[in-house]
Computed example of a mutant assay.
Amino acid sequence: MFGRERRRPGDADSAALRAGLTPQQLAALETLEQFQWTLRFVRRPMFQDPIPVVVDRSGKRHALLKSDGSLDENLGFKIRD
């Protein structure tokens, strides 16, 4: 039992994605995860706040998680497959 890796493979990636998010974004993300939304990626434009993008469980709906914790489904850019 000792020595076995207990973390899931995505845990380090998840922590890296969450780095720099506001407390409101983190709280909203926790709530969204209960509804099976996932933090897919974070855009990090130079000299601007990070822009986290979440996706629903079907993978068809994407939304921006704004700094105040609200969702914006008008991404303003195209999501590639």
Rank of each mutant, 00 (worst) to 15 (best):
F2K: 12
F2G: 15
G3V: 00
E5R: 13
R7F: 13
R8W: 14
G10R: 15
A12D: 11
S14Y: 12
A15D: 10
A16I: 10
A16C: 13
R18A: 09
A19Y: 09
Q24G: 03
L26M: 06
L26G: 01
L26F: 02
L26C: 03
A27P: 07
A28K: 01
L29H: 05
L29Y: 05
E30A: 14
E30G: 14
T31E: 14
W37V: 00
W37M: 04
L39N: 03
R44E: 05
F47M: 09
D49K: 13
P50L: 06
P50M: 05
I51N: 04
P52L: 05
P52M: 02
P52Y: 02
V54G: 00
V55F: 02
D56A: 05
D56I: 01
R57M: 06
R57K: 13
R61W: 10
L64V: 10
L65V: 02
L65E: 00
K66T: 02
K66W: 01
K66E: 08
S67N: 07
S67M: 07
D68E: 06
G69T: 08
S70Q: 08
L75G: 03
L75V: 08
G76M: 06
F77G: 00
F77Q: 02
K78H: 07
K78Y: 10
R80D: 12
D81E: 09
D81H: 13
